[in-house]
Design a binder for these strands. Structure first.
Lengths: 222, 222
DNA sequence: ACCTGAACACCGTTCAAGT
DNA sequence: ACCTGAACACCGTTCAAGT
């Protein structure tokens, strides 16, 4: 599996810092203080260097984030038992990706920064595509099916992570609370009916239910 | 429908700028130069004021973005013909939301900033929840179903918008291209099979296919 | 009540120079 | 080849003061 190309070593002054060291230090900062605190300047002081030295080892901050995600994926993605049944294989692979990423709220910034996560996640993509083909889809439709699953999974993680962050920095009722408190039951009867229960209902973790529905729908002959 | 509370008018010096003026100016900046260029300072010069005057009318920049999204929703969301058939009603409402937001790539930053879009989008949420209930789901499961559709829709928009932005600021083959060029066919046979077609396949707009699959799966008795 | 000026505490990145 | 210092061109937000 290729890493993004590292700067070539030929002659001259030996490097004092390495990509690995940068990624490890970035991980420490993110784990201890959150993504927001990961800046090129903060990272430079963490490894006892200057901001500009970093740009000798990564193209820019975006690339650093991709490297960080890759590092995270390599360390935490555990390959699950893959059931023979196609539908269950797809669900198991998608759930494994979801589980790894959901524990990692800082991922959001990086998810939107690159559509495919990392080389080490490809095995999971393979399981999903293969399961969909085994379930009767053409390879083309299987790729589209994988994409739909990825949209659903990434969307769930991004929205939940932001909601959690919002809850941390809490100040009074949210805009949503205000809107739901003032619903017109004549115009919006269904929403009025569930208005009181909206917050707890949407806080429930129903990722797997939605995933199963999506996979069912993708595999259903139509 | 309530707007977020505006500062109370009582006595004293009459205001020189209003929320409406701020939102209109913000819209001009975003349309002409992109979200990245929308800063409190830029907005202040746009309306011939100072950054700090703005903080008298909005709590912070996040609130300004929510107001901007609300303004966008009011102006662009068009209520579609709603079919009687529950399944088609859900699809039509979700597709309408998707269509409005997909034309608006700057939305990404705001989507992750608040899970429900705006008061003017509630009618569409009502249609989706109502359609799912008409299709046989309990109100609780219908809300969960709506959330699944929202995750899928928001994920699709965010990922596509970022991919488009990435394509604009193009410099050479992406990380993904490199990864796919070096696949091991023994370890990842399915992905190797479609490797050449991966980019065009994932560039295709298959939002509606995935949506229909998801709605089918949600409505299928299990 | 509403607005201003100045400042705080930062950013990512470029450039020219050093070793 | 690798690193440094200084600078560029910005940010969002707070504070104290003015009208």
């Amino acid at each position: 599996m290729p890493q993004p190309p590292a700067p070539r070593r030929t002659l001259g002054r030996p490097p004092r810092i390495s990509r690995e060291e940068m990624v490890a230090a970035a991980r420490r900062i993110v784990d201890a203080e959150g993504v927001d605190r990961l800046t090129m300047r903060r990272l430079a002081t963490e490894i006892g260097s200057t901001p500009m030295a970093l740009y000798h080892h990564v193209r820019n901050k975006d690339q650093l984030l991709v490297l960080l995600l890759d590092d995270y994926a390599v360390r935490t993605l555990r390959r699950p038992e893959v059931p023979d049944e196609p539908r269950e294989r797809v669900v198991a692979a998608a759930a494994a990706i979801h589980e790894a990423l959901a524990d990692c709220p800082w991922i959001v910034e990086v998810l939107t920064a690159d559509d495919l996560m990392s080389a080490s996640a490809l095995w999971f993509v393979e399981q999903i595509v293969d399961g969909l083909v085994a379930g009767g889809l053409s390879p083309e439709r299987a790729v589209h099916g994988y994409r739909a699953i990825w949209y659903y999974t990434a969307g769930e993680i991004m929205i939940r992570a932001t909601a959690a962050r919002r809850r941390r920095t809490d100040d009074g009722p949210t805009y949503r609370d205000q809107v739901f408190a003032a619903l017109d039951p004549d115009e919006l009867p269904r929403l009025s009916e569930v208005a009181q229960r909206w917050a707890p209902l949407t806080a429930e973790d129903t990722y797997l239910d939605g995933l199963r529905a999506l996979v069912d729908g993708l595999l259903a002959a139509r």
